[in-house]
Computed example of a mutant assay.
Amino acid sequence: MKNRQALLTIHRWLGLALALLLVVQGGTGIAMVFRDEIEPVLHSELRVAPGPVRLSMQRLFDTVEAAHPEASIARAEIPQSADQAVLFKLKRRADKAPILTAIDPYRGRIVRDGGLSTWPVEWLFVVHEQLLSGPVGEYVIGFEGIVLFIMSATGLWFWWPGRKRFKSGFRVMWRGSTDIRWRTLHRVVGAVAGPVLLVTALTGILMVWKEPLRGLVGAEGKPTPAVAEQAGRPLAPLDDLVARARADFGGTPLRQIRFSSGGRVVAVYLDSNRSIRPDGTAQYYFNGYDGALLATYIAGEQSTPSELIDWIYTVHTGLWGGWFGRSLLLAGGITLLGLGLTGPWLWYSRRSRRKPSRARSKPAHDMLS
């Protein structure tokens, strides 16, 4: 009994201390589950009319670069649907502020352009990932994940009614007082969503400290090649690099092009048909000057520890189970939002009910003094 009460106390005070952060994570997590579907609805200009021929990636790159000479292009994201714009993500050189530019791949026309504040869903993603605070925010999110894991575990432990009374653990007292009704509902919903929240918290923690985890389990890190600047030397056409990667791997669809080492390393991301992971990619890293292949990272061909670590993001976002997995994560986000709001209210309600009883139990001479 004492152990159960101690766990309840830990659960309660952790929840009160991080209630606001849990609400933020739950609310932003809801939007992230169906991020790719929400964005074209919010910004109709991202839907484009397919034309007979797509323009070359180099031409799209040059158009975006000309529109933002003050920024460097970090990546280009190619949607799976033919009627969606290609999204370029840039960073201003002066302050590293992000810029997002969407371009019609058939006409070469920029259809949407602006900083993070003009892209609500992308803004929510950065809030969810790092609280708009860079690496410091990521570590705060990691700490919140640890707290959520502890809360989910202690909540399930406190809720557990035993095997013989298992069914009674899912009973909500609808006919009781408002306080009892919400208290039992909070407990039951938390118990049902507990396993999902445990997995979400654990994968979120592992994502924050993914690189130390690689070293701990002996997993290979993703390639990080670098190329020295060669002043005046032009870069190789992007389409040649994409064509080389596709010819080597087998012609699977292009998903991303990423730029590192000052744009001198070009990473071509193709769908990997050698992995059962739904977001698995075949990554080809090229020297941007001469097109020399610097490294590859093929999902489905890595060591077991590396493959398991790469699954963390897939599980955290619900991609592992298609619409079912994402719907499960959506329910988890809604539950976290609800628990984060009802928990402090239940604590306040409990304290409010205790105050009158304490006042009545005071000795008369204390009341008069």
Rank of each mutant, 00 (worst) to 15 (best):
S303V: 06
H68W: 09
T200E: 12
K222W: 14
L14S: 04
Q5I: 11
N287W: 09
K164H: 11
M173G: 00
L131V: 13
V196P: 06
G215Y: 03
L339N: 05
G204T: 03
R112W: 10
E45M: 13
V268F: 03
Q5C: 00
G134L: 10
G325N: 07
T317A: 10
A247D: 12
H128L: 06
L42P: 08
L213I: 12
R274H: 12
E65H: 14
V217K: 04
A31N: 08
W347C: 11
I334P: 03
L235G: 02
R246F: 07
P305K: 11
L55V: 05
A94E: 14
R93F: 00
W209N: 02
L330C: 09
W345R: 13
Q84I: 05
Q302M: 12
K164M: 01
E229S: 12
T252F: 01
Y285I: 01
P69A: 07
G204M: 04
I110F: 11
I276E: 15
T335A: 15
W157K: 08
S275L: 07
T203R: 13
K96I: 01
E39G: 02
Y348N: 13
A82H: 10
A247R: 11
R171D: 02
H68G: 00
Q5D: 08
A74G: 14
G155N: 00
A31I: 13
G29C: 07
F170I: 00
G343R: 08
L329A: 06
L254K: 07
R233G: 00
R258L: 07
F88H: 08
L131H: 10
L131E: 12
